[in-house]
Design a protein around this nucleic acid. Structure first.
Lengths: 134, 134
DNA sequence: CCATGTGTACTATATAGCTAGTACACTAAT
DNA sequence: ATTAGTGTACTAGCTATATAGTACACATGG
């Protein structure tokens, strides 16, 4: 059987938020990875187990995992399980560029909606960057 | 009639992108404001005119304009027209700065989770900005 | 007051999205 | 080969979303 650790990460759903269940799962996994609560090699709950825990249909879990797999954040192995992938080293450059453009576009839209210019956003990012000594 | 300038900004739709029409309008206005192609006081195309230009239903334009109005990005005056609002006058500077920091922080978190550096994000934003101004 | 141009409200309908149900396929341990 | 555990595929139905149709209300200029 699998020798890799199962994470202790716990999911939580808000059924009254209006946010689709599969999206809540996606966001929680992304957040956990970004916050190092989930790390490369960690096994996620199985499709069925998470479906039981959250009292939802297995296909809803599948949908969430599939989107994360498409993003390269995790790998699924039929018959074995679903695991956090070894980062983005294997992802093609064009897909990577596409994702960066998406992030930038969303950031611009959000800043614009709040009445900020791209210039202001860039300046803020730059000062934040210096603050982190990156 | 209205003395304020009508902007020369042009909308463009991709009917095959799968992105809702109203959302394309919203994003283009937000982007234009962020990129200073639309400025405070500019009049947007009328609901009916834009509907004719884009060959869509007026209500679709209404929906887009309403979302932007809710965000405080524009103001509608029944019988007169729809105009880009001057948000800077309506919000305290410190709250504005706090909001900008929040947006920047979120953008950094998202980019970081996807394996990008702040530098890469800034470069992408800059090229997007230049692309808008030609 | 009237004509015209503006945004608004309400309803209807087609489409897409989300979730569920059920059955199948692959993997590994026995 | 069997069995239990895993992900996968396909279908269906309900819900929300997006758009269209039609009629109404406000603003401005003659």
């Amino acid at each position: 059987m699998a020798s890799r650790l199962k994470s202790t990460f716990r999911f939580h759903l808000d059924m009254h938020s209006g946010v689709p269940v599969y999206r809540q799962i996606v966001d929680q996994v992304r957040g956990a990875v970004a916050g190092c609560n989930l790390n490369a090699g960690d096994q996620l709950p199985t499709v069925r187990q998470l479906a039981v825990d959250l009292e939802i249909n297995p296909n809803t879990v599948v949908r969430a995992y599939r989107e994360l797999e498409y993003d390269g954040l995790l790998e699924t192995h039929q018959g074995t399980g679903t695991f956090i992938s070894d980062q983005k080293l294997h992802r093609p450059a064009d897909e990577r560029q596409r994702q960066l453009e998406q992030i930038a576009s969303d950031s611009i839209a959000r800043a614009g909606a709040a009445g900020f210019t791209i210039r202001e956003l860039i300046d803020q990012l730059r000062s934040a960057s210096e603050g982190r000594k990156q």
